[in-house]
C-alpha cells in the first residue's frame, strides 16, 4: 500500500487553474521531488496535501485513509509534517521550544493536568525536552538550543524547521524548498541530513526544490509541473533528457 495516493487533484482559484489533474503515488521510504518553473503550482500541491487548501476536485489518501475534510492540524497529527518555503519559526520562542512544541499535538495531559503539573504531565514534559534535545543533536543545533530562533543564520533556521516537523512524529515529510538560500556546502550537508533522517525515522519524503543539482542527487523520482499540469515524470536521468522539461525551463526551440 502506498503512503500517499493523490488522484485527479485540481485546484481552481476563480478562473485560474493552479493545479490540474495531478496524480501521485508515494511508496514507503521514497524521496520524490516536485519541480517546475515559478508559479507552476508546486506549493499549491503541498498546501492541498497538508490541508491548507481544499482541492476543487480529486482525492488524497494518506495510508489508505482519505484526508478530505480534515484540517491542517489533524493531517499533521495523522502523520504528514511540512516545512515552509519562507521559513516560519515561532520568533520569540527559543530554539528548543520551537522543537518541543512539535510534541504538543501528541500530549495526553489535559490543560488542567499541565497547569497543575500532575505526574503524567511531568513525565510528558521530560519526554518532550529529551526528545527535542535528541532532534536538535540530529540536525546539529545542540549548542544553540537556548538561543532565540530568529537569531540563527538562515541555514540553521531551515534545519530547525525540519527538526520541528520531525517532532510531530510524521511518516511523510513535505519539504518546501529546503535548500533555498543555502551555499553548496550547506546544501551538501542538508542532503546527507535528509538521507540520514529518512533511514533513522522511516520517512517518506516529498520535496519541492529549485536547486537542480540537489534534486537530481537526492530524488529517486521526479515530477515536473508547468502551469499546473504534470509535463513529465521519471528518474532524474529521464527528466534531465526530457525535451518538454527543457522547453518548460528554457523556452521553446525555434526551428529555423
Amino acid at each position: 500500500m502506498s503512503v500517499l495516493s493523490v488522484e485527479h487533484l485540481t485546484m481552481k482559484f476563480g478562473g485560474l487553474v493552479a493545479v490540474n489533474d495531478f496524480h501521485l503515488e508515494l511508496e514507503k521510504g521514497e524521496i520524490v521531488g516536485l519541480i517546475g518553473p515559478n508559479g507552476a503550482g508546486k506549493t499549491t500541491v503541498f498546501n492541498m496535501i497538508a490541508g491548507y487548501y481544499v482541492p476543487t476536485e480529486g482525492s488524497i489518501r494518506f495510508q489508505g485513509q482519505p484526508t478530505q475534510g480534515k484540517k491542517a492540524n489533524q493531517i499533521t497529527k495523522a502523520g504528514i509534517a511540512r516545512t515552509f518555503q519562507n521559513i516560519r519559526l515561532f520568533s520569540e520562542l527559543s530554539v528548543i521550544e520551537n522543537v518541543m512544541i512539535g510534541y504538543h499535538c501528541r500530549l495526553r495531559s489535559t490543560f488542567l493536568g499541565a497547569t497543575l503539573k500532575l505526574p503524567l504531565y511531568r513525565r510528558e514534559e521530560k519526554m518532550m525536552h529529551e526528545g527535542a534535545l535528541k532532534l536538535l543533536a540530529e540536525v546539529g543545533l545542540t549548542d544553540v538550543a537556548h538561543e532565540m530562533s530568529t537569531s540563527l543564520p538562515y541555514g540553521k533556521q531551515r534545519r530547525l524547521e525540519i527538526a520541528r516537523a520531525l517532532a510531530t512524529g510524521p511518516q511523510l515529510l513535505l519539504l518546501d524548498e529546503p535548500a533555498a538560500g543555502m551555499n553548496p556546502n550547506e546544501t551538501q550537508d542538508l542532503l546527507q541530513l535528509i538521507l540520514r533522517l529518512r533511514k533513522d525515522y522511516d520517512l517518506t519524503v516529498f520535496l519541492i526544490e529549485h536547486d537542480m543539482k540537489f534534486v537530481m542527487e537526492i530524488c529517486e523520482r521526479i515530477k515536473v509541473l508547468d502551469y499546473g499540469t504534470t509535463i513529465a515524470e521519471g528518474t532524474p536521468h529521464e527528466i534531465q533528457n526530457n525535451p518538454r522539461v527543457i522547453e518548460a525551463y528554457l523556452g521553446e526551440v525555434q526551428c529555423a
Binding site: 491548507y52 492540524n73 499533521t76 511540512r82 515552509f84 504538543h104 516537523a165
Partner: peptide, 8 residues
C-alpha cells in the same frame, strides 16, 4: 499557519 503545521 505554522502552529497548524505542527499539529496545534
Amino acid at each position: 499557519a505554522a502552529a497548524e503545521a505542527v499539529g496545534i
